[in-house]
Design a protein around this nucleic acid. Sequence first.
DNA 1: ATACTATTCAATTGATTACTTGAATAGTAG
DNA 2: CTACTATTCAAGTAATCAATTGAATAGTAT
Lengths: 218, 218
Amino acid sequence: MSFKQDLFSQFARIGKALSHANRLQMLDYLAQAERSVEDLARVSGLSVANTSQHLQQLRQAGLVSSDKRGLKVHYRLASDDVVELLKMIRQISERQLADVGRLVDTYLTIKDQLEPVQRDELLDRVRQGLVTVIDVRPENEYAAGHLPGAINIPPDELQQRLQNIDPDKEVVAYCRGPHCVYSYDAVEMLREKGLSASRLEDGFPEWKSAGFPVESSD
Amino acid sequence: MSFKQDLFSQFARIGKALSHANRLQMLDYLAQAERSVEDLARVSGLSVANTSQHLQQLRQAGLVSSDKRGLKVHYRLASDDVVELLKMIRQISERQLADVGRLVDTYLTIKDQLEPVQRDELLDRVRQGLVTVIDVRPENEYAAGHLPGAINIPPDELQQRLQNIDPDKEVVAYCRGPHCVYSYDAVEMLREKGLSASRLEDGFPEWKSAGFPVESSD
DNA sequence: ATACTATTCAATTGATTACTTGAATAGTAG
DNA sequence: CTACTATTCAAGTAATCAATTGAATAGTAT
């Protein structure tokens, strides 16, 4: 009979509302505070009309409610259950991603052990143009010799020069040697900014002495 | 920024998996026990190929896992988090969508389905006249001894005698023992008809041997 | 009144999705 | 080996959905 079907179709409305990244982003913003349509359109980078339509889907699913005050319509989460629901999704998602090992190990993992990249592996990927290599040593050391194609960004400049780094490429940082702290710091910071970053095993001296190619800026 | 987008897209994958009534129904069945593709195809009334595709979406979203044993592939929920997630959806659905309230009243919740009725609890409720008890064994076994007040409806007669069952009362079905399939089938069918039905833990022999009262029709 | 603002509605387009069919794969049994 | 079973894959079609555009509403300010 269609009884069960009806029930599951109702549940599916909620699932459907959660099935689009933009709507989830809106819910995320609404979890912080109630907002107008315009606010939500701005933060999600959508047109107002499009935003409005998404919001209506969320309202139909019973996830948000709204009221009009003056000119503006204010939206908010319908109940705390929605926060719980989002939390569950996040939880399952993170576990799933950890199992498969995709986004989580570059973005989300807190107890990440900063697994270093092998030298030969890095060289391959540099030649394919897949990675941005960052040398975090002082400028004079960089000038004396560095990895092919590496750009020099001392630790204190990293913050400002973030926008020069291609966010779609993987970043590998290195410095003087295996125990140099700067490359750790750089990787940590880059990951916080959402970039996929890792450390070269060891440092420049080891790279050079292993017979790998070197560039210098004379 | 692409980082957040990626993250919400990952969450959306879970939402997408939950956005179809058939998939939710499958999750519901998997919440009770692990099942083969064929089992799930049968209960959801879909083709095996279609069922398989839905299951793969659920697996990609990290909601179910599977393993092959011999010919059959067994699917199960990936973790208890998924049960929690379903519970949240049901809860929001119940609270927010006015038209669902009625359905949920008669349809036992996902969690309830996992738990059969305890013997002593059943006896209490029988004495208060709150439940209809159905014995789904063959007539001769019923005649030899049955639970007090139980009515005998063999599985193949259930369909026709539905109208004799008070739809406002809770129904509890039992048969020979804990692994007897008839009571499961009866419960499933009654629930499909919108009745509040559940199974007695174990069966008649266990009831009798535990010293609970018994009636017989001589 | 008129002009203006925030939101929603309606129609359109291109992209996904569900489901079907028939074939491919992997494991079992004789 | 061959026949058989359970599941998955791949290709095609019809339905559904996201986003755009331009117009319609409802409220505010002058």
